[in-house]
Design a protein around this nucleic acid. Structure first.
Lengths: 226, 226
DNA sequence: CGTGCTTTTGAAAATCATCAAGTATAGTGG
DNA sequence: CCACTATACTTGATGATTTTCAAAAGCACG
């Protein structure tokens, strides 16, 4: 609830007083790291919001190849689906806390909170823009550019959220996850980050804490201008 | 207006009688092949629906690399953007016909046609699902798998739409466009299609008319099972 | 029947993947 | 508390898919 969960989540559209009623419809669930809580193809009976932690959303090919389509953190709304079954999987990256709502009550919910529909449309529109950006990354950027883009994207959106030194980011997900998100292999991620470090573009406090030392050059790299 | 423009377009949510009023707000525009009608970064003053022809939506990198994020054909709604400027470009692939609406009147429009908001959410949700599928393609599929997926995707959604022989598809876009959509080069597209042809999975009446001769094997290929 | 553009084909090169192994890190039980 | 094991991360050598560079073939249009 700290750092903008309310401001950025779908609840942002809801009056403070109404939050009580909304909360009554939600089932809070603790999800341990590694647990899958949405499975592709399963009937889409619920939708979710993440109240703590991080989840990865992904699709699979029959032979196990995996594409992570996004990471969802605090305040993110999950489960937008027109079809009657989920089109992706969701798994907790770290121990997380989610709120579950019944999908069949979504209609009722929207009737009760009309602003919600507008808000959902905004959420969907934003995700669509992000998805297009990711398609550009996956289809046209080099490994270096992908990693730079990823690191920078991790930086924005956590303003005031953490107690990290300025310019630092935390990577709660494993290298394998980053690889499956960027359409690369673990080895390439590792090598690329090592190279970025040797070029003093980043600094690695630990595998999970990265300092973006040369923001400008990273930015240039990420946008394909280097 | 034939083959489902009304059924699949956003207007599907609107009563027949109200269509008149809606039409009064729209500016029909003829867009010749090759003309750009949405430019990334420009103020998002309008939104559009395509009433004839095909458009490509794309993003660019400063050095000219291009990623086509989708092809929009009859009935498609364009311009969902929360931000005040467009996040992508749109250009007509063939001579097309579009309807332009003022964005600032969208709110009014939605107030007049409440079903519209629901409809827009559905459109956005569907596009999101398609975008995730495309991320899987761009991040994890081989060239062969991408081309097979593309051809199959072109097949569905035109049921009863054309006078083409059963199993045939038309590709209004150039090879370069297919390449930029699939994250490959023109040469790879060409080589891959030649190979699919030599394996009797497809037949090429002309560069733009393709027959999907072996639907099952194409399907297996597209889903990574071959 | 050129002229220009799209598509196709060929040869060489490059980026990234694969295979393999070493190092660090965290959690577990003695 | 410390060794031990499992896992994650990193590094190296090799290889393959796809890109790049180059040019020929096909088509449309004037």
């Amino acid at each position: 609830m700290s750092c903008g969960a309310r401001a950025s989540g779908i609840c942002a559209a809801i009056e403070e007083g109404d939050l009580q009623r909304l909360a009554a419809l939600a089932t809070p669930i603790a999800v341990p790291a590694g647990r899958t809580f949405i499975t592709e193809g399963d009937p889409a009976e619920h939708f979710f919001t993440i109240t703590a932690g991080t989840a990865k959303l992904f699709k699979l090919l029959p032979d196990g190849r995996r594409q992570i389509t996004g990471f969802a953190s605090i305040g993110t709304f999950l489960g937008l689906a027109v079809s009657s079954s989920y089109a992706f999987n969701a798994e907790a990256v770290e121990d997380s806390q989610i709120c579950r709502f019944s999908r069949i009550r979504l209609r009722t919910l929207i009737d009760d909170f009309p602003a919600l529909e507008r808000r959902l449309l905004d959420v969907a529109s934003n995700e669509l823009v992000a998805a297009q950006e990711q398609m550009l990354l996956l289809g046209r950027k080099t490994a270096r550019e992908r990693v730079a883009s990823f690191l920078l994207a991790r930086e924005s959106g956590l303003a005031g959220c953490t107690t990290l030194p300025r310019g630092s980011i935390l990577l709660p997900m494993a290298r394998t996850d980053i690889a499956d998100y960027l359409g690369l292999t673990v080895e390439t991620i590792s090598r690329t980050m090592t190279r970025l470090r040797s070029e003093r573009l980043i600094e690695m406090r630990s595998p999970t804490e990265i300092v973006l030392s040369n923001h400008d050059r990273l930015e240039a790299l990420a946008t394909g201008m280097a």
